[in-house]
Computed example of a mutant assay.
Amino acid sequence: MPPQMLKKCRTASHRPAVKRRRFRHDEVTAVDLFSGFGGLTKGLKEAGVTTIMAANHDDYKVAVHEANHPEAERWIADLVDPEAADYHSARDLPPADFLAAGVSCVNHSQANTIKAYEQGAALFELDDPDYEARVTRSERDRATANCVLHYAAQHHPRLILVECTTELTSWGPAIPGSRKIGDGSTYRWWLKQFDLLNYDQALYGHYRGKSALAALLLRFDLATGGIEVVDAGSPTLWRIRGSTTERVELDRQLPLGMFEDTVYAMQRLRLLPGDRSVFVACDPGEPRSAGDGEAGDGPVARALAQARHLSCADAPRAVVRALREASPGAPESVLVVCLDWHGPETGRPGAATPGDGGPLPPPGTP
C-alpha cells in the first residue's frame, strides 16, 4: 500500500478546558479563530478579555495553546473546507462578545522578499516555478477570512479583530501585467459583507428561508451626492432630473433571508444638485400600461412627472393617489418615498465644493 494511504484519517475533535474557568456575569468573552500558539489569546487576556474557545487545525499548536491558556476550550479542526473529514464550521462555535481571528497569511505574505532582493528583482517579478500551486495555497489562506464572516453571521459579536499581513487587501483577480498582484475586489467584497450581515443572515437564521424580505438598501453621502445601493428584490427607484423622469435600472438580486450565504453586489450611483430620487412599491404590483405604445411602467412614470413640481413632502401623496386611480391593475397598496438633494452643505467639514458634486463613481455607473 502506498505510504500516503497509511496516513491516519483526521476527524474534528473537541478538547475541554484543562483548568476550570470562573464565570462572571460581567466578563467579556472571546473566541479565537486560527489561534496558533495563543498570541492573540494572551493579548486579549492582558486586556481583560476571557477567551472561552480557540480553534486551529494543527495538533501541535493546539497543544501549545492549551499549555499557555488552560482555561479555554479548543477545537482541532479544519474550519475552511466543508469536504474535509475534520471539518467543523465556525458557525457552530459558541457565541462570544469578541471575535479574534489570525487569518492565515503564510502563502501570500512578503516572506520571499529576501530571496527577491538576492536576485535583484522586485518581489512580484521574482521567478517562481511553483507559482500556480502557490496561488492555490494563497487562495486557501485568504478563504480563512470567510470563516470570520460565517461566525459573525451566526453570532453577531460586539467586536471583531482580524490580524493578517497587508497582502490580504490584494485579494482578487490578478491585475493585467502583474499576475501576482490582485486588484483587491474580493477583499472589498469581503468588507462589504459585514454591512449586510445584520439583515440577510439574521433573517435567514430566524426563518431558515421560509420567509424573506424584499428591500432596497442604500447609503447616501450627503456631502457628495454619492449613493451605494443593493437591490434585494426591492421597490423601484426613479430619478427626476430637470424635466426628465427615468427609472434607474438596478441589478435585481435575491430578497434578504431567502438563502444562506447569499453574496450581494453593491452598485454606485451619483446625484446632481436638484435631483429627486423616488422609491415606489406597489402591492401586488405596479399598474399596467393601457397600451397605445406606452412603456410597461408608464403609469408610474406619468404619475411621477405630474408631481415633480410639488414639494418633497406633497409629491408622495399625489403619486399614491394617481396610482390608486390607475386603470387597469390599480394596486391595493402603494408606498412612495421621496428624497430631494440640493447639493453639498456649504461650510460643513468635509463637504464638497459647490458645483463639483464630489468624487465621480467608477466608470460605467449611472
Rank of each mutant, 00 (worst) to 15 (best):
W238T: 14
L168E: 10
C147R: 15
E260T: 00
D221R: 00
A232V: 06
Q267W: 03
S211Y: 05
G242W: 00
T144N: 14
D200P: 15
D251W: 05
A153V: 09
C282G: 08
Y199P: 04
R252A: 03
L196C: 15
F259C: 11
L237K: 12
G184T: 15
Y199G: 10
T166E: 13
L250M: 14
R179V: 06
T224L: 00
S178H: 14
D141A: 09
R140L: 11
W238A: 09
A174D: 01
V162L: 11
I175L: 12
V229R: 08
R247L: 07
V280D: 10
G172H: 02
I175P: 03
L196Y: 07
F194G: 12
A232E: 08
M266I: 05
G257Q: 11
E246H: 06
H150L: 06
L271I: 00
Y207V: 02
L191R: 05
Y204P: 15
S185D: 03
K192M: 09
A232D: 12
L149H: 08
L250R: 12
P273T: 09
A215I: 13
G209Y: 10
L256Q: 11
A215Y: 08
V280M: 12
V280G: 04
E249D: 11
V248Y: 01
S277C: 13
Q154E: 14
Y151M: 08
R247Q: 14
L272R: 14
F259K: 13
R247P: 03
P235E: 09
F259G: 05
P173S: 04
R239C: 04
D275R: 14
D221P: 00
S178Q: 12
T144S: 14
K210F: 12
C147E: 12
C147L: 08
L191D: 07
I175T: 10
